[in-house]
């Protein structure tokens, strides 16, 4: 994060406002991967993510002359990218799979955890299997648009609560609420997934394994 901020200060806003292409290329170099990743996790479609990436930087290039510098360049870019991605989602008119309804039922209350399984001990290769990662991506996709974008900005891109609030033009309290629900929902889903994996672990074998490991 601090390295990113340092790099950001390296940009000359004046040069960017004047349409300096070398300076703009530095911005593209710094942020293209982050924005592609956000768009990909948001849209789950490589072509749409690529289009979002291109549109974001085209808009940014032309938009710099009106950029007031009230926010960080990165925050401003994320705002453009987020709007582009949301527009894609709406154009496609995909039926939104929402858990908002479920959440709104107990409005003001919390998303209560129901699956209590300690799956932290699973081996790394099991936790990170491509099937597990695919499951995680699908679980993210099933979050409501509002929760998903908040979650991705905070936990995937590592923006602060304040920056996320700025990008989405919502209060910091709203960011925290959405984030909490998104995280708890994902935890719940993963607990279901990895809980099944734990159940299928042959218990006797693992006991034998302990004996073997004792010497090490």
């Amino acid at each position: 994060m601090s390295e990113q901020q340092k790099r950001e200060e390296d940009f000359s806003l004046q040069a960017l406002k004047e349409g300096d292409r070398a300076e703009f290329a530095k911005v593209v170099e710094t942020y293209s991967e982050k924005i592609y990743r956000l768009a990909l996790k948001m849209l789950r479609n490589q072509q749409d993510a690529e289009d979002t990436l291109q549109e974001t930087f085209i808009k940014a290039y032309h938009g710099f002359k009106d950029f007031k510098g009230h926010s960080k360049i990165s925050t401003w870019l994320y705002r453009i990218a987020t709007n582009e991605a949301l527009m894609f989602l709406r154009q496609k008119g995909e039926p939104e799979i929402s858990i908002d309804k479920q959440v709104q039922v107990d409005d003001g209350q919390t998303y209560t955890p129901t699956k209590i399984v300690d799956w932290c001990c699973l081996p790394e290769e099991e936790l990170m299997s491509s099937e597990a990662m695919e499951y995680l991506d699908r679980a993210i996709e099933q979050l409501s648009e509002a929760m998903r974008v908040t979650f991705l900005l905070r936990d995937l891109e590592g923006l602060s609560t304040r920056e996320t609030a700025e990008v989405l033009d919502i209060s910091e309290a709203a960011v925290k609420t959405r984030l909490s629900r998104a995280r708890m929902h994902l935890r719940e889903r993963l607990s279901g997934y990895y809980g099944d994996a734990l159940d299928s672990l042959p218990i006797e074998t693992s006991h034998q394994g302990q004996d073997v490991l004792e010497g090490s």
Binding site: C120, A132, R183, L186, L190
Partner: peptide, 8 residues
């Protein structure tokens, strides 16, 4: 498990 979720 919440921490582990974010780690993943």
């Amino acid at each position: 498990t919440l921490k582990k979720t974010l780690y993943l």
